[in-house]
Amino acid sequence: MHGYRYIEGTATLQVDRQRCVGCGLCTEVCPHRIFALSADGLEVRDLDLCMECGACARNCPVQALTVSPGVGCAAALLTAWTNRLLRRKVVGGCC
């Protein structure tokens, strides 16, 4: 197995190659190894492997990466939806 792919084209990760300074921190922290840094700049090898954990964007020194981060957990989302439906304040999450 090399990586579990999730649903095609849903990940919100975006790269601004103009901003990237090539520090390589994103390639280090990504738990799914989706970045490749070469002389041509930063490349996303496989977007469907992105789980939107946000580690890359958080540690990017120049905001070249944007992603809407969070935990991919149905139970957490279901709780959030129920709370919104019942107009309750949200406390806690999933794990």
């Binding site: 579990y4 999730y6 649903i7 992105c50 789980m51 939107e52 991919g72 149905a74 139970a75 989302l77």
Partner: peptide, 19 residues
């Protein structure tokens, strides 16, 4: 569907999509 929360590869956008 609930097992998405236990895996290390499901993205929140993807989970919302499938839910």
């Amino acid at each position: 569907m609930n097992f998405t929360g236990s895996t290390p590869f499901t993205s929140p956008s993807g989970v919302e999509y499938e839910m």
